[in-house]
């Protein structure tokens, strides 16, 4: 159920990319898809009654080993979130440049190549 709703979030972004003609809207759709995928990967590593994988002086090691959530997806999703910022910043820079050149965000109106 949780997985399916997370997939619906991903598909909302996919629908946005398929139907919208505004470049900023397309980048917003990309960002929504990325959020869905990141959340799905973290959901896969959750354990019921899970504890945070940080060891403290007061941590009971036996309880920690039995109930710690998966640290591997969390670490890789941390990487993925930061890379997502980089790619979307690059996309927004391209949008702003296109707006300066053509005066519109609409991909249907951006047709001719201007030198």
């Amino acid at each position: 159920m949780v997985f399916a709703l997370c997939f619906v979030l991903f598909l909302t972004g996919l629908y946005c990319i398929l139907t919208k003609k505004n470049t900023v809207k397309i980048i917003i759709g990309l960002s929504i898809m990325e959020a869905g995928v990141n959340l799905f990967l973290v959901l896969l590593g959750y354990k019921n009654d899970g504890v945070v994988p940080i060891i403290d002086r007061s941590t009971d090691i036996v309880h920690f080993l039995a109930y710690s959530v998966d640290p591997l997806p969390q670490a890789l999703v941390l990487t993925s979130i930061v890379i997502g910022l980089g790619t979307i910043a690059l996309g927004i820079a391209l949008c702003m440049r296109l707006y300066v050149k053509y005066g519109t965000f609409d991909i249907a109106e951006i047709r001719r190549l201007k030198g």
Partner: peptide, 25 residues
């Protein structure tokens, strides 16, 4: 989901992303 590091990074990235997007629009 017991991932406080991710929550902090997500907030920071989201703020930067909103600044970029608002600057663009």
């Amino acid at each position: 989901l017991a991932a406080p590091d991710l929550a902090i990074v997500q907030i920071a990235v989201e703020v930067l992303l909103l600044i970029f997007l608002i600057r663009a629009t």
